[in-house]
Write a protein that binds this DNA or RNA. Structure first.
Lengths: 242, 242
DNA sequence: ACCTGAACACCGTTCAAGT
DNA sequence: ACCTGAACACCGTTCAAGT
């Protein structure tokens, strides 16, 4: 009811932390923070605006729409991926190093795999990544068309394999996924053996691979498949005189 | 203002087409029709209710929530997938037949690939499909753990490869994807050669594979990789006496 | 040029009330 | 048991108006 007493002039008004002026960079940065902390479902234009202490409409001066924002977030994160400088002698191992780094980055930003789906990374970092990936693929002695496709196939593999274990990288609670796996296993085991002999037999193997081993196995399968396309060393067309 | 004149009793009231009573089956069926015709973004609970001439709340008597609805839709469609009865001599070819069928089904229901993402198909049709898939995988002489994982890997492959060409199967307009590819190619070609030698070199191969050839190539790569894990025939453990 | 409030046209889900 | 209207707590985006 009573009017609040105005602050005396000698009191430094506790200025609200001098809100940084809006910019595309800042918007992307805060969006990434929300993504990391709370995931894609929590990242709305309105929530983002709130975090930036402004209204949702203000964002559209710096970003065309939500889709473009996600493009920018995705590209930003791609700077963290480490891609080995090709050493043809270590090709299979280097491919795996690249994929492991990609996985680590995907796992360290919540829901990034979901963001990456059907997004072609053509931003500044994405393009640099693609250049290095192509360099690496070609070092395996793959024909150009196979090398080109291999880049896509491998990245898609990491995406799908990362989609499910959406918990943060430092995830210390293996209980939840394991409990879920156990639940599925017991369901499969409970099926009538005469109609589902293979499912009953395979209930164990189907549910017992953890995400780490799935990933390592998947990499190995694809790399072996790709290796069958490699030209024998010494016939590397890019090594000849130009 | 004036009261409408009541219809005379002798006039057969043009009964609104005797709306079928709500049921889970009907709801799933109509949901699939919306999906096919207009895609996942058009499939909202409200829109679905409207199509069924009822309110959104009514759906929740038959379906727990939207996620469960999508589970049901996905399972329904899985009945269309054809999985060969295993013939070990034709293993690689049969795996491909299965994958091609899966792709056809995914492509003939708009956005089904998106629906399938991070959904484990444990409904009645899904479980039958899984049983047959496991039978097929094992026929290749793969160790159980490899066979189990192979099922996932191959299905994920089809999903991602189907995600992008989201146009209907009968798609007669190859212009759009090709135009997009051409756009990317010209962008890649325009990059500075000294910093992006591999991208410039690979611009052609990267953008010239159509979805059909990508799919065939991807299958071949993975199947070759899997084949390296096959036990030699005659050592098939499941064939021995029990 | 940048920012804003208000509005438009939507969402999924719940809940008390009806039959 | 099934269905309903109304409400709750949200969405992305646009637009006229302000500075």
């Amino acid at each position: 009811m009573t009017e609040p007493i105005p602050a005396p002039p000698w009191q430094t008004p506790k200025k609200p932390p001098p809100r940084q002026p809006l910019s595309q960079d800042l918007i992307v940065q805060v969006a990434l923070r929300i993504l990391d902390a709370e995931g894609l479902d929590a990242l709305s234009m309105r929530r983002l605006a709130q975090e930036l202490e402004t209204g949702p409409a203000s964002l559209y001066a710096h970003v065309a729409n939500k889709d473009e924002l996600l493009d920018l977030v995705y590209d930003t994160v791609l700077s963290e991926v480490e891609i080995p400088v090709p050493d043809p002698d270590r090709w299979p191992e280097q491919v795996k190093e690249y994929l492991r780094s990609l996985r680590t980055v995907f796992r360290s930003h919540r829901d990034l795999a979901r963001v990456s789906i059907s997004r072609i990374p053509l931003g500044p970092n994405g393009v640099v990544g693609m250049e290095r990936t192509m360099a690496l693929m070609r070092a395996g002695g793959l024909p150009d068309d196979i090398a080109a496709y291999a880049g896509d196939l491998l990245a898609s593999f990491v995406t799908t394999e990362t989609l499910d274990d959406a918990f943060p990288a430092g995830g210390t609670d293996p209980a939840t996924p394991r409990a879920y796996a156990a639940q599925i296993r017991s369901y499969l085991t409970s099926l009538p053996v005469d109609r589902f002999p293979n499912l009953v037999h395979m209930a164990g193997p189907i549910t017992s691979l953890d995400s780490e081993r799935r990933f390592e196995l998947g990499m190995e399968i694809i790399v072996r498949g790709l290796s069958t396309y490699a030209r024998p060393a010494g016939q590397d067309s890019s090594a000849g005189s130009g």
